[in-house]
Design a protein around this nucleic acid. Structure first.
Lengths: 224, 224
DNA sequence: AATCTATAATAGTATTACTATCATTTTAAA
DNA sequence: TTTAAAATGATAGTAATACTATTATAGATT
């Protein structure tokens, strides 16, 4: 069973809603592919236009600039991840199991329950790992934050924090631990692939040691 | 007592050694100020040249591009931090105390024992927090890594990992925990200032709750 | 049939990220 | 002390980037 999914995004993220037109969806689809392939620094609207078979000017009607587009797709990812989290933790009794789901989601080990034709979530996950932080590591953070652009990230973080509190209601750092878990999962995956000496996982494709590390980190932290 | 310090940097980081000339040191000094003020994205060699009172072309004789310069200054920071770590943990009996020093160093709570006239370490610390990750989050990671550009970061990470092993020789993830500690310290400081809902620290200037969180994270992880 | 909307096609500007040349100043070697 | 070498400054130039603006056309809507 898979569910058709359409995520309503914050209008401050775009000039024209890319989900409302064929061209818009093409822009999203090809930007994910292109950013994944050449990296955000080398990515330009000109190159994207060629991939999409449209023009630079047309893309500028949808997004103010490439940074906004990056924020759009990473934010979309966080929203999708929260949906997945809600779906997969539904009916679970033990908060322990819920934490396991969170970790599996962050390491992309959970089967995707939602269909979105034009978004390749695996590529998008790769982008979030390599480029995701650049969405908020700018001089515009404060302003973007006021426009609520990071709300989905915060919502996800808050939801994870609440699971932590189910496990240990006395715990003093649920949000910090949640954001640390999210960031660490991604950063350690990046290190594993590109700078393996900063980890203890080796370079093999297996995520199991990473999952164990994250479980250890979280469960130990939450102990009384 | 303070020590005069000159750090020998990996020649792959520069075209001409900026530490060997007045202009070179000026470039470093003003780039730290400028990147701190306007952010790495808006930072250009043109603007830097104006600040320095020199020309774009002259700066290009020292650094291939602005990304290399960023890698240079962040790498300098890691080297300096390792020196500080060695200095401040010297003669300490308990690995527990050493871990406390590590955390205090990462949160900039330790008195600096080294003099470098042209480098403002407080500004540099700010840059490492906001922009530091951009040094390795690029499509050039692998190549840069082969040129040993990230060795100081790895050395620091390894040294911290060894302290962890002093505390618990059986611990299976010393390097991952070390890199997680470094990254988390900086990211939580960033969140604290710009996206405080992702933390439990509030927006006050105090670093104490952060220090406690990091201590909790590390010591709990290292328990048997 | 008239009109509105989205897109394509094209052009244009300021800035960025360089590279190249040559004159001049500073430094180092003979 | 002269001479050569190296470093810098001044200037110019190029290709690409990051946009904005204008006009024409095709398609959908009323």
């Amino acid at each position: 069973m898979e569910l058709q999914l359409q995520i309503k995004m914050n209008p401050n993220l775009y000039l024209r809603d890319p989900d409302s037109t064929e061209l818009g969806r093409n822009i999203i689809q090809h930007s994910i592919k292109l950013i994944h392939d050449i990296g955000f620094e080398d990515f330009t609207f000109k190159k994207l236009a060629i991939e999409v078979g449209s023009t630079e000017a047309s893309i500028y009607r949808y997004f103010e600039n490439k940074h906004r587009l990056l924020t759009y797709i990473t934010t979309w990812f966080w929203t999708w991840l929260e949906y997945q989290l809600i779906f997969h933790t539904n009916n679970l009794k033990h908060p322990r199991e819920k934490v396991d789901i969170v970790i599996k989601l962050l390491t992309f080990e959970v089967q995707d329950k939602f269909i979105v034709e034009h978004i390749d979530k695996s590529l998008l996950h790769g982008i979030v790992i390599c480029e995701g932080d650049k969405a908020y590591l700018t001089k515009n953070v404060t302003e973007d934050n006021k426009s609520m652009l990071f709300k989905p990230y915060k919502d996800l973080c808050h939801r994870i924090a609440e699971i932590f509190l189910e496990l240990n209601a006395e715990f003093g750092f649920p949000h910090s631990l949640a954001s640390t878990l999210i960031e660490t999962a991604h950063r350690q995956m990046y290190f594993k692939e590109h700078l393996p000496r900063l980890t203890d996982f080796g370079k093999s494709k297996k995520v199991k040691p990473l999952v164990e590390f994250l479980q250890h980190l979280v469960f130990k932290s939450l102990e009384n």
